[in-house]
Every structure is written in structure tokens, then in C-alpha cells.
Amino acid sequence: MNAPVPTDRLASPSPASNVVPGTPAGPPRGDGILVDRVSVTYPNGTTAVRDASFALDPGTICALVGINGSGKSTVFKAIMGFVRPSAGAVRLCGMPVAQALKRNIVAYVPQSEDVDWNFPVLVEDVVMMGRYGHMNMLRIPARADRAKVDEALERVGMAAFRKRQIGELSGGQKKRVFLARALAQEGRIILLDEPFTGVDVTTEGAIVALLRELRAAGHVMLVSTHDLGSVPDFCDQVVLLDRTVLAAGATAEVFTPENLQRTFGGALRNFRLGGAALHQDADRRSLTVLTDDERPLVFYGDPDSDGEGRT
């Protein structure tokens, strides 16, 4: 699953594993997340995102890809209502943001620097916070809430750590706890800001498997990531961002070498190997390796190749 992906898989219609049963054909209508011509200007005058639009339906995993400072976190903030768009609008499950938040529809897995790790809360307390939106004013957990917390901890494999103070975990473990909180929250929409940074391959695999389960259950997930290599593995939609949406749509159509070049410009390490540099024989295939900062994305130039040349 973690092997780089050959072009033929990208160029052909999405592989079976990426198709959710019952997903209507045609472009997404935005029944999950609809970002409609949104611009965000910060108080210091920086316009971080201009005229960004994309639409996601339930049962989708969408990657949000772009260089540092391209506005990924800003898009999350706009979806969460942290920053008010200076133009355009966001609708979540057909509702305005404020209403969607009140209905407890959105779960957010933060970039790890946004949390106070010294706070005296245990892992299970953090996951229980996901249930607060389902409780009464006093936030007294019912048996059902405890059961959900247990289940969420099991699913991310953190049940053994439930009595640890939240700061006493490794980076990858912290990520899993926050994922468990999102599970316990049972939001239709899950936003994950760089869930794979500093996470090893096993944990990444576990997180991806979990996201797939959630997709099958009809959740919408928006995942910002620098890990280009894994995007075609589990994302059925991609939004390429550079202060605006450069391209958005099905992975097969959008996640192409040309678009990625456009998104990353010089920031992407790009090795094109072909002809004499690659082979001594008459093979005319070429090989393109794109890498941002994590796992490289490998395109094989010849559409006939069946991927024997995988690295």
C-alpha cells in the first residue's frame, strides 16, 4: 500500500478500492463540504486564500495539497469559522458553518502545535471531550458516552494508554488520540490538518485504514498532507492549493505531474530520468519522481508499463 504509484493507476479510472458503493457519478455537488468562492484576508492584510472553490460529497476522502504557506490551514480555519471569509461562503452538509458547528457535525484533528500538552488531562479525558456535544449542559457522561470512548480508543489502538497524561505520549500516539476524539464525536465531517507529519509507516497505515472505514460509513474527510506518495492510495478527491485552488476533482484527473509542477513550482524535488540516464537498452520509458518532503511520488512515463518497475 505504501509503494509509489505508477501513472497507469492514476490515468485509468480510480481503482476499485477508491470507489465507494452508492456514490453518484458526475462531479460532487458539495453535500458534504461546499467551499464557494472563498477569500480570506488576515488582519495584517495578507490575503491567504483568494476565490477558492471546491465541493465534496459524503463518502469522500479529499487531500488538500500545497506548499508551506499555500493556505491549507487557512482553508481549515474558514471551514471551522475561525476566520470569516472576506468573500464567498462555506456550507457544511448544506448548512451555514455556525449552524453546523452547533449541530456537532464537524470534528477537527489539529496540527499538534495548537494544543497545550501540559494540561492535566488524561488520554481518556481528551477522547471524552469528543462526546461533550452529545451531552447535557453539565457534561456528565452517560454509559453510552463511555462506551463510545472505549470503542474509539480501541479503534486507534490506544486503549492501553488511556490513563496517561496527554503530554506523556509520542507524536504519533498524540495524533491517534485526537483521531479517537474525532471518532467519538461522530461528526459527519472530519478535518485533519497534517495527520501524517512525524508518523511512522505503520501508524500511517493504521490511520489510512481508519479513514477508509469512515469513508465507507459515509463521512467526508479533508486531509492536508505533504505526503504526496500516499495521496493516490486513499484519497478519491484532491484539491491543489496555492493561495487559491489550482485544481480540484477526482484524484485520477487532478493529481498529474503537470498539475503538481504547477502547485509546487521549484519547491518540489523533481527527478526526471529517461533514455540513457535510466537504461542502457532501447526502452523508451521515462521515470519521474516527485517529492515534497516525505514519501516520493513516482510516475512512470510509459502508459503500457504494468508497474513492474516499481521501486
Binding site: 471551522m80 469559522g81 475561525f82 458547528l101 464537524v106 477537527y108 489539529p110 456535544g133 476524539r181
Partner: peptide, 10 residues
């Protein structure tokens, strides 16, 4: 503890 989450639960 986590303002973003606080907002997300309304």
C-alpha cells in the same frame, strides 16, 4: 485546552 475543538462542538 483546545479552542478549535471547543468551537467544533458548538
Amino acid at each position: 485546552f483546545d479552542e478549535a475543538h471547543a468551537r467544533s462542538i458548538g
